[in-house]
Design a protein around this nucleic acid. Structure first.
Lengths: 248, 248
DNA sequence: CGCGCCATGTTGTCTGACAACAACTGTGAG
DNA sequence: CTCACAGTTGTTGTCAGACAACATGGCGCG
């Protein structure tokens, strides 16, 4: 054990040798390098043996990590040959690291399609529990004023509550997928630098408008309110022009 | 080798001992049993050792299979305790095995939202390659008349080609996810019993209408044509009433 | 009755080996 | 000189055994 700890302090890869998180950590490290272009599409990753040496892990652990990347469609393996970086477009991979403005705009476009339709359906289908959940998320947002991370959380919770109110489980799942993967994107709709009170108030008002429209069971108003909200969020993120220019 | 072959013929699990597909096969078998309720939510799967005995595979292979299920959110493992079936709703899990009519209807609803919007965008954004791909998928569909599996394939390819023509990568990814997971669902829009020539012709005509609208760069017509097509497919699948009654 | 200890069981990781491929190099024949 | 075949080396997929890090259950003592 103490020998293990000494090795743990030996270098920059120390964190990558920690116990049961090792395959996840290794997979993330490799995924990051792939995303940064260190291993471009169709290039070959280091062999398992090399990765064992690099990460100080057993072959089983390395294989576990590679398996995760394979499952995510990021890499493919060929027996006898090696593990290769898959071409993009292999799976539903949301922008994880530093999405480009174009990627952000594409996500917003998808959100606008799905979440406006979701708001309209929620307006027609909500029940007491749904409305309570939406209201609580809005209240949490109000209380979180001044705290950027907390307002982002409440914002996400609000959108998920609406998706749940559609009564369509797949709708709910997909919006959760979008919202979860878009945490960075949602965060980007607020200035990372300083708390912007004016922007928060505007954003909060848009959320109130959405809730009111849904509460009134007015599907078209709900749709419009959601569209306004998402459009404004895209504007705040500086994506107006990119969004209107989608497609090269 | 010959000893291996003899063991391979020893019983009903013979196919499950085949070479490099074993972890996939084992994962699918377990997933099927979970879906059929043999292992309900929160119940514990057999131990790795038991699964090794059952499938005649090494522990590494079993772990590979379990890892796939973990990655899909179907199971969770607790070190020292066992592998447990996860509660539903853990991830974006499309209906895989025998979706209920309600599940099918929910998927159709989501498709109607996403794919109608996709057709409209494809109409505005397609380029020569896109149109060639859409046209080829339609041609493949025509040639596949009489062969149910091949027409389903071509049908899927058609929809994916349209998604690609949106020029939005996330759109493309999501429609692929829907189409991929919905292979059973798309298949259900055709009678499993017998080839239905009249239905095929109608379906094919709807696809022609979609292609024409997109080709003409008429977004609203494309949207309408896709809606008609998906609505008819839902009708053919016997989902009309369920779809209109979504939400308990 | 509650807590602590011990034995047993289970997953996570490590090590070494062999099987099944893939890629490369060298040699011989046409 | 070119091509095909054989052999060698390398890499992933699977197997087997071992130990680490947990979890669970039972028993004994206060």
């Amino acid at each position: 054990m103490s020998e293990r700890n000494e090795r743990g302090e030996a270098g920059a890869d120390a964190a990558e040798r920690r116990g049961s998180a090792a395959p996840d950590v290794i997979a993330s490290a490799l995924e990051d390098e792939i995303a940064r272009g260190i291993y471009p599409a169709d290039s070959r990753l280091p062999t398992e043996r090399e990765l064992c040496a690099r990460f100080g892990a057993s072959r089983a652990t390395i294989r576990e990590a590679i398996s995760k990347l394979k499952h995510d469609g990021i890499v493919r393996s060929r027996r006898g040959s090696g593990v290769y970086v898959a071409r993009p477009d292999n799976s539903f991979r949301m922008a994880r690291a530093a999405p480009t403005p174009r990627e952000q705009a594409e996500i917003f476009e998808l959100r606008m399609i799905v979440e406006t339709a979701g708001a309209a359906r929620a307006a027609l289908r909500w029940d007491e529990d749904d409305m309570t959940a939406i209201g609580e998320a809005l209240e949490a947002m109000r209380r979180a004023a001044g705290d950027r991370a907390a307002t982002v959380d409440a914002d996400t919770t609000f959108h998920l509550a609406i998706a749940r109110a559609t009564g369509n489980r797949y709708f709910n799942d997909f919006v959760r997928l979008l919202e979860t993967s878009l945490r960075t994107n949602v965060a980007l709709s607020y200035s990372p630098a300083d708390w912007d009170e004016e922007q928060f108030q505007r954003n909060y008002s848009e959320h109130v408008a959405i809730l009111r429209a849904i509460e009134a069971r007015d599907a078209e108003r709900a749709r419009a309110a959601m569209l306004i909200h998402l459009g404004t969020a895209a504007d705040d993120a500086g994506l107006t022009e990119v969004l209107s220019n989608l497609r090269p």
